[in-house]
Design a protein around this nucleic acid. Structure first.
Lengths: 172, 172
DNA sequence: TATTGTTATACTCTATAACTATA
DNA sequence: TATAGTTATAGAGTATAACAATA
């Protein structure tokens, strides 16, 4: 592991959860999720809301498009779409021009459901922002946006020379 | 996005994922999780690391203490501890003073595992921070800390007058 | 051969409720 | 009765790998 970052001997007491972005992000999301439930309820999970909203705005796109747009794994998305189709929120249609792709459409019921949730989504955003000191708000969203935009190689792993295989430079 | 709470008629196009804290937090966490895997691998999930670290720092505390400290649900934590015990990272010991509580201890193996992961944890933190413009970094952590600290009534629902029962003031 | 989507597998996390054994 | 922990359910999301159909 590339410990050259800080090759000092590290005491257990020197690290703690309060300066661990991963942990903080999880807690923050947890808090946000709680507010989400208060505002929107359990009819739709937050990722489901994101997906439905995206489809509402660009109906007819292929699943793969939403994978990238919404940031949900291919197989996860497939399962999510299954559930939402089962609940009458979405439909799948085989694309004519390419028989491999499923175009996604939102049903009237799905549309109504998302639209109903939109005010709640605003409230979630607003309430979370209100928890923060005013001077941190803009920067916070900026920071999250930057992190969200970083493409972690989203299903486009650029066919590197298949020679060596092995290490993703995973450093073990 | 601050279109004043709601009450206005909202067009679908006016809201989008790029100003939705919930969505942004999820994406950001996703990105962080990917870095976590690169640095630490799949030996431990991020929540497991948090838990082990907490126990390393305060061994012998009851499970319930870690529920609050680490922010993991009671039953989730129970299952996590099961897995970690099974993998020889933790032990449970019935507390003498209160036969209901399980005190948690980290084993030498667990200790070694966390300690080995600590440099990686630093790297995760560092790498995530480096993705951000310098001027956003401190504020970002501050904001996350604030959000993390908000207690969403963590298993301490304070026995309100048992009179009315009913509404958790859940609004809805 | 590459791409889209599905399926299988396996983990993990979350939440609720009911249950036990204590206190 | 309240608390600590477990267990049973149920629902989601995530990730990997393998596969079929299609391009």
């Amino acid at each position: 592991m590339k410990r050259r970052a800080h090759e000092t001997s590290i005491e257990d007491e020197e690290i703690d959860l309060s300066n661990n972005v991963g942990h903080l992000l999880r807690r923050a999301q947890q808090r946000t999720a709680a507010i989400y439930v208060e505002e929107i309820g359990r009819e739709m999970s937050s990722p489901q809301f994101s997906l439905l909203l995206a489809i509402l705005q660009e109906p007819g796109r292929a699943q793969i498009d939403f994978v990238q747009k919404v940031g949900i794994d291919r197989s996860t998305l497939s399962a999510m779409v299954d559930r939402l189709v089962k609940r009458g929120m979405l439909t799948r249609e085989r694309a004519q021009h390419d028989q491999r792709v499923d175009a996604l459409f939102i049903t009237p019921k799905g549309t109504a459901t998302v639209r109903r949730a939109i005010p709640g989504a605003y409230n979630v955003h607003r309430r979370v922002m209100q928890l923060l000191p005013v001077d941190l708000r803009v920067g916070f969203i900026k920071a999250l946006t930057v992190l969200s935009e970083q493409p972690a190689e989203p299903s486009k792993p650029k066919p590197r020379r298949k020679s060596a295989t092995a290490g993703e430079d995973d450093a073990e």
